[in-house]
């Protein structure tokens, strides 16, 4: 199957990347080129194969549930494009 402009626009919205209409045809072509190449994976018989998220099969290590970091809002906010009163500032969300 191949992607059309409407789908690509939707994917861009999900990814929160603004795509102008003029860019769409080129992007559709590129993404379809990649996805068509990927289709060869359908040849592989994967019956009974467990999906693998990473190479370590063991459980992730645990640590004691204690506070071991934090309390440094200045460092956290230091690189913020906009911050005030110890908070990140964003455009108004609730009208």
């Amino acid at each position: 199957m191949s992607l059309d402009q409407k789908q690509v626009k939707h994917i861009a919205t999900l990814a929160r990347i603004r795509v102008e209409d003029a860019e769409l045809p080129g992007l559709v072509n590129e993404l379809n080129g990649i996805m068509t190449w990927i289709e060869q994976l359908n040849e592989v018989d994967v019956t009974g194969v467990e999906p693998m998220a990473g190479v370590q099969s063991r459980d992730l290590p645990r640590r004691r549930d204690v506070i071991n970091d934090g309390g440094d809002p200045e460092k956290v906010l230091k690189n913020a494009p906009d911050a005030t009163h110890g908070f990140f500032v964003v455009p108004k969300v609730v009208e």
Binding site: T13, I17, R18, F88, P91, K92, V93
Partner: peptide
Amino acid sequence: GVRFGLRVPGESLDDMYELTRA
């Protein structure tokens, strides 16, 4: 565009996200 790096201002939060990432 909230915690570090580039921010491109937008009308709404989503607008800012999309423009910043574009």
